[in-house]
Lab assay of single mutants.
Amino acid sequence: TLFEALYDYEARTEDDLSFHKGEKFQILNSSEGDWWEVRSLTTGETGYIPSPYLA
């Protein structure tokens, strides 16, 4: 399933992933509550992002 970022986000820890509004992601793991592990389709990087920032 693909999701798109609604807002920009700046990583706060080394496990987080910074991203920009409009960036698209593949969800790798959504079992961690509000923090999902994703792969950016723009950069190929993986990390955790806050799920409320996605649509």
Score class of each variant (00 low, 15 high):
L54R: 05
F19L: 03
F3M: 09
G33P: 13
E23I: 01
R39D: 04
E37M: 11
Y7R: 06
N29Y: 04
F19Q: 01
D16W: 11
Y9A: 01
A5I: 03
S30M: 14
E37L: 15
T43H: 02
D8C: 08
D16T: 14
Q26F: 15
D15K: 15
I49Q: 00
S18Q: 03
R39F: 06
K24G: 02
L41W: 07
Y53W: 10
T42H: 09
S40T: 11
D34V: 08
G22C: 04
L54A: 09
E4D: 05
G47V: 03
H20M: 11
G47P: 00
A55S: 06
E14P: 13
G47L: 06
W35T: 11
F3P: 01
P52S: 15
S31T: 13
E37S: 02
E14A: 12
G44K: 01
W36Y: 04
S31C: 12
E4L: 10
E4M: 12
E45H: 09
Y7Q: 15
R12C: 10
L28T: 02
R39T: 08
A5G: 02
Y7M: 09
V38F: 11
R12F: 08
A55H: 13
D34E: 10
L41R: 00
D34G: 11
F19A: 05
F19H: 03
K21F: 11
L6R: 06
G33R: 12
V38Y: 01
T13P: 03
P50Q: 08
E32N: 15
Y7T: 06
T46L: 11
R39Y: 10
E10A: 07
F25C: 01
L54T: 06
S30Q: 12
A11T: 03
Y7H: 06
G44L: 04
E23C: 04
G44Q: 05
Y9G: 01
A5Q: 01
K24M: 14
N29H: 11
G22W: 03
T1E: 13
E37A: 03
I49G: 11
S51C: 07
S51M: 05
L2G: 14
E4C: 13
P50G: 02
I27Q: 00
S18D: 03
E45I: 08
R12K: 14
L6N: 06
S18G: 06
D34A: 08
L54W: 08
R39N: 04
L2P: 06
L28I: 10
E23Q: 05
A11V: 12
E14V: 09
S51G: 11
E10C: 12
A5T: 04
D16C: 13
P52Q: 15
K24R: 09
N29E: 05
S30L: 07
E37V: 09
E4K: 03
W36A: 00
G47C: 09
P50D: 02
T46I: 12
S40R: 13
D8L: 04
G47Y: 07
E37F: 15
V38E: 00
Y7I: 08
D16Q: 15
N29M: 05
E10P: 03
E10Y: 08
T13M: 10
E37K: 09
Q26P: 00
A5M: 05
G44V: 02
R39E: 07
I49N: 02
K21Y: 05
L41E: 08
E32T: 12
F19G: 01
T1P: 13
T1L: 14
F3E: 01
Y53L: 12
S30T: 13
K24C: 09
Y48S: 04
E32A: 13
E45F: 09
Y53K: 07
K21Q: 07
L41A: 15
Y53E: 05
W36K: 00
L17G: 15
F19M: 09
S30W: 12
A5E: 04
E23A: 03
S31K: 08
G22Y: 11
E14L: 08
K21E: 04
S40K: 12
L41S: 03
E32W: 11
T1N: 12
D34W: 13
F19R: 00
Y48F: 12
T13H: 14
I27P: 02
Y48V: 07
I27L: 13
V38N: 00
T13C: 15
Y48I: 09
S51K: 10
F25T: 00
R39H: 05
D15I: 14
F3G: 08
Y7V: 08
A55G: 10
I49P: 00
E23P: 00
T1W: 14
F3I: 05
E4F: 12
Q26N: 03
E10K: 08
K21C: 07
T46P: 00
G22F: 08
L2C: 07
L54S: 09
E23M: 03
K21M: 06
P52L: 15
T46M: 07
S18Y: 05
G44Y: 04
A5D: 10
L17K: 02
